[in-house]
Structure formats: structure tokens, C-alpha cells
């Protein structure tokens, strides 16, 4: 009886302890950030162009209550995730193929090496001309900003597979297709995931530029309108939300990796 009780308490404390020690550093560092921001805007800059965090929080709360912030968030997130997953879905097989076949590499690499130096923001006009001012153009820019990083990381991952790993599969009778799906792909998973994490950060950066193209809603739209109408609080709410969403998305992605891709030895 007593042993059982002791064990339960022990489990409970460690669980609470782990939760606290997991969240505590974030609480501390975010609080420090907001305190520094507060001090800077009250004592250092003293301008209506740099509102203190409280003011921004109040504004954010207002926008949340009215539902406007939610609409903008969802609009942006939808574009980001559509583009991000589409870009990854295209980039992974391209990267695997480039990495697996020297002939394909020689054919495709000039393209990727050329295009990846043209930033997505520079393609806004092209996106408008090609896709118009609808959703397609914006998603295209996110796909564009995602795909090259994913291709590059995936191809590098394939190149790093040890020769004996490939040879072992060949000696066991693997076909070309099996080499691709059962060796190259799983061996490359850590590289793919790293590429996708970098691409996700890129997507959050690019969304602001993408929403310069006329859009009814979005965090980028909020930002540009804020500039147009001098709504400084709105601008800060948008920035804060972008940062927090990006942070949360990356955390979730890492948790997902840890939960589902642990056996592939990912770097989180």
C-alpha cells in the first residue's frame, strides 16, 4: 500500500517538475524580452511610434475579441502551410533523385543553383503576372521559398549515405526502386526534416512580402495597412503574432519529429 502511494507521488512530482523545467526557461526569457521592450519604449525612445508591450497586448486582445486577428492569422497560416507542404512534397523527390543519380544532378543542378539565389520577394511581380492577385500567386511564393532549401538538404543527405549501406542493400537483392524508397529516403530523413524546418522559417518571412499582393486578410495585410494608415499598434500586433506563430509552428514540428521520426535519428 504505502509503497504504491510513494511511487505515485514520485511520478507526479517528476512529471510536474519536468513540465515546469520545460516551460520555465521560456517564461523567463519571454518576460525578460517584454521587460526590456517596456523599458526601452518608456524611458529610451518615448515615441508613439514605439508603443510599450502593454499597449500592444491590449490592442491584440481587442483584435482577438472582434475576431479580426483570428481571420488574419488563419488566412496567413493557410497560405504558409499550403505552400510549405506543397514545396516540401515537390522538393523531397527532386532532392532524392538529384542525390541518387549523377546524370540527373548534372541536368537539374544548374537550375536549382541559379534559382535559389533569386529571393522570393524579387518574384512578387512575376507571381502577379503569372497567377494574378488571387491565392495562387501567394502560395506560389511560399512554394518557391520552400522548395530549394528542401531540395538542397535532401540531395546533401543522399550524398552523405555511407557507401556500404547502399552496397549492403544491393547485395541483398534490392532493385533501383527499393534502393530509393527503402534506403535513400529513410537514410535522408534527418536532412529532409532539417531542410523543412529552415523552409518553414523562410515561409514565415516570405508571407509578409507575398501579402503585399492585394489580399483581403492576412498578417502581412495587417502590416501593410498599418503602414498605410499609421496604425503603429496594429503593426506591432502583426509582428508579435508572426513571431509567436513561427515559434509555435517550429516547436510543434520538432515535437512531431520527436514523436514520429525518432527512429531516423533526427537533429532536434
Amino acid at each position: 500500500m504505502s509503497t504504491f502511494a510513494v511511487t505515485t507521488i514520485h511520478v507526479k512530482t517528476t512529471w510536474a517538475f519536468r513540465l515546469a523545467s520545460g516551460i520555465l526557461p521560456y517564461l523567463v526569457s519571454f518576460s525578460a524580452l517584454f521587460i526590456a521592450w517596456h523599458l526601452a519604449s518608456i524611458y529610451l525612445v518615448k515615441s508613439i511610434l514605439f508603443p510599450p508591450p502593454i499597449e500592444v497586448f491590449v490592442k491584440a486582445w481587442e483584435l482577438l475579441r472582434s475576431g479580426d486577428l483570428e481571420i488574419d492569422m488563419l488566412a496567413s497560416l493557410q497560405r504558409i502551410f499550403l505552400g510549405f507542404f506543397l514545396g516540401s512534397a515537390l522538393g523531397i523527390p527532386i532532392g532524392l533523385t538529384i542525390g541518387s543519380f549523377a546524370s540527373v544532378r548534372r541536368l537539374v543542378e544548374p537550375w536549382t543553383e541559379f534559382l535559389r539565389f533569386i529571393p522570393a520577394t524579387a518574384l512578387i511581380t512575376i507571381a502577379v503576372i503569372w497567377f494574378g492577385i488571387g491565392e495562387e500567386g501567394k502560395v506560389f511564393l511560399i512554394v518557391y521559398t520552400t522548395i530549394f532549401i528542401v531540395i538542397l538538404n535532401t540531395a546533401a543527405g543522399v550524398a552523405s549515405i555511407h557507401k556500404n549501406m547502399t552496397r549492403a542493400a544491393l547485395a541483398l537483392g534490392a532493385t533501383r526502386w527499393q534502393m530509393y524508397t527503402l534506403v535513400a529516403l529513410p537514410a535522408t530523413v534527418p536532412f529532409i526534416l532539417t531542410g523543412m524546418r529552415l523552409a518553414m522559417a523562410n515561409s514565415f518571412t516570405t508571407i509578409v512580402a507575398a501579402e503585399m499582393i492585394s489580399a483581403p486578410h492576412g498578417l502581412g495585410v495587417m502590416l501593410w495597412n498599418g503602414r498605410l494608415f499609421m496604425l503603429v499598434d496594429d503593426i506591432f500586433v502583426s509582428l508579435l503574432t508572426l513571431g509567436l506563430l513561427g515559434f509555435a509552428a517550429d516547436r510543434l514540428f520538432r515535437m512531431g519529429i520527436y514523436r514520429f521520426a525518432h527512429r531516423y535519428g533526427p537533429v532536434t
Binding site: 555511407h162 556500404n164 549501406m165 549492403a168 541483398l172 537514410a187 527512429r263 535519428g265
Partner: peptide, 15 residues
């Protein structure tokens, strides 16, 4: 022709 390689680089780390 089955092969046992020198070193352990040929094992699949995810299996």
C-alpha cells in the same frame, strides 16, 4: 553472394 562488411556503417540505423 551475401556480404559482411568491415565496420558497422552498413547497418540501417533506423531499423
Amino acid at each position: 553472394r551475401g556480404v559482411v562488411f568491415q565496420g558497422d556503417n552498413s547497418l540501417y540505423s533506423w531499423l
